Each structure stands twice: as C-alpha cells, then as structure tokens.
Computed example of a mutant assay.
Amino acid sequence: KNWKRPITIARHAYGDVYKSVDFRTDEPGECVMTFRGASGAEHTVSVQKVDGPAVWQGAHNKDKSIRSFARACFQYAIDTRQDLWFSTKDTIAKVYDGEFKKIFEEEYEARYKAEFEKLGLTYFYTLIDDAVARVIRSEGGYIWACKNYDGDVMTDMVSTAFGSLAMMTSVLVAPDGTMEFEAAHGTVTRHYYKYLKGEETSTNPMATIFAWSGALKRRGELDGLPELVHFGEKLEEACYDTLNAGVMTKDLVGLVEPGFAATAVTSKEFLNAIAGRLAEKLA
C-alpha cells in the first residue's frame, strides 16, 4: 500500500541463464571450463570435482551488451526524470556480476554523472537482496535495473504486488532506439479455451491495450503525427477512467479496499466501457 508511484524495472534482455548451455553427467569426475582466444591463448578453470551424478551449466555475457544496457538505463532515467538503482550479487559472483557493476560505474562517471547531478537524480548500486528490501519499503517512482533473470522474476513480483500481472506494461528497447511494445504476461490459456467454447471470461486486457497505445504513440512521434499520439493518450485515459469508475475485471475486484464501489464485469463489458469513454474523449 505504500507504493504510490510506478516502479520501472529495466531488464537486460541478453545472456546469462537464457543463453546458457547445460548437461548432465552420471559418474565421478571433474568439469573444466576453457576459453580459447583468437590469439591462441587459453584460459582454463576447474568448475568442480564430483563423486557422482551432477548437472552443469555455463553462462556468458558480453561487455558490449552490458555497456549498451547501462547506457539505455541511464538515458531512460534522464528522459523520464527518475532515479536509477542497479543491483546484482557481486559479493558471490565477484567476476561475473562484478563486471556488470564496473561497467555501470564507468558509464555513469564518464557519460551521465553531470546530467544526473544537474537534474537532481540519483544513481546507486546495491546488492539484489538489499534492493528487494528497499523496493518493498519504498514509495516507488524510480527505475530498477536488473540482470536478465533478476528482471524476469522481479517484474512478476512488482506487477502482482501492484494488483495484477495483467497490469504490467512492457517495452523492449534496442541500442538504436527501436522499440517493441508488448503485454509481458503472455497468454491466459484457460480463458482462451473458454472463449473458443463461446463462454464469457473476465480477462484483464489492460497490458495488451497499453502495448497498442504505447506503440501508436511511438509511431506518431516518429512520423510526426500528433493526432496518433493524441489517440494513444486518450485511449490510456479511457482505461484509467473506467477503473476509477469501479468497472473492472475479476482479478482486480478482490483487491479493492473497503469504501470503493467496484463491479466485476466480463472482458467484453470491460472493453465496451473503455470504448464508450474513448468515444466521448475523441468526440
């Protein structure tokens, strides 16, 4: 209940466990990891010696990708006038996570510190477990930069604590500024099967709507179409107005505090209520 402003999670969308390789072994032995450089140099470390069956995993990341992620985070913080937090577990993964920490510090000092100070913004690094505790106690209103897996998990935690996974908007940002807007929650399969049978559902479409509104606004900015930007903004306003009027899907009704009148409606009724308000705003 102490979260009063949005929390933006910046998730590094490359590498780590998502591009790892793994395998299983059935006998005692030793696993070693070797890097062979283009120059012919080799670096080898012993991962572990085991006395029986075991599983193994090798993960990687690239300095170039980490640096691009850091720049995107700092620039987004400047553009949106928000503080930036960054967290890893460099006390355990001293080299791997330590590289993330080092690159973020280099980028901040060399490129963004002056602008942050000019705007009164704060950048700080902390361990992931400390960051979680800080987030829970905070009022929101900042960007929380995370490695790939941390960001995957923490987005679900934050969105659910705000009320519903279906309320989480998501945008993928490429180094060249290209953006892709999506509903990060994926597909609600059992609701879809009910829909195919002709049954009514009360699926929350907010994240999907905001994926479209975000994409339309961005397209309008790129093409110099203020009318398209205006449409996207009014669509979002219509969504907020509908919720504030107490019209919402079942996933939200159960979270409403006493004293606020809320009515659970079907997906179709919810969309129709938004469409009606949007028509009034565009009239």
Rank of each mutant, 00 (worst) to 15 (best):
G232F: 05
L228E: 02
E236F: 00
L228W: 10
S213Y: 10
F181E: 01
L216N: 02
E180I: 09
T203V: 05
M206Q: 12
A183F: 05
L228V: 11
E227K: 14
T189M: 12
P226K: 03
E182A: 06
Y240W: 05
P175H: 01
Y240E: 13
D176I: 07
L235W: 01
T178Y: 05
Y192A: 09
L235E: 02
V173M: 15
K197Y: 04
Y192Q: 13
M168K: 04
A183G: 02
D223V: 09
H185W: 03
E227S: 15
E182C: 13
T189E: 10
Y192T: 04
V173F: 14
V171M: 09
L172Y: 11
T242F: 06
E182M: 13
L172T: 13
T169M: 14
D223W: 13
S213W: 06
E200L: 12
Y192S: 11
Y193P: 05
F231G: 01
E236T: 06
L235C: 01
C239G: 06
V173G: 09
T187E: 12
E200K: 14
A183E: 08
I209P: 04
K234F: 00
L222M: 14
H185L: 10
H230E: 10
A238C: 06
D223C: 14
I209T: 06
P175I: 08
L235Y: 01
K194N: 04
S213M: 02
A238L: 04
S170D: 02
D241S: 13
H191I: 04
L196A: 12
S170C: 15
E199N: 08
P226V: 00
D241W: 00
A184Q: 02
Y192L: 15
L228S: 02
E237W: 00
E199Q: 12
T242R: 03
Y240G: 03
E227N: 12
H230I: 03
H185Y: 07
E236D: 12
L222S: 09
D223E: 15
A211L: 01
G224S: 04
T201A: 01
V173S: 10
G232A: 04
Y195N: 09
R219L: 15
K194I: 03
E237G: 10
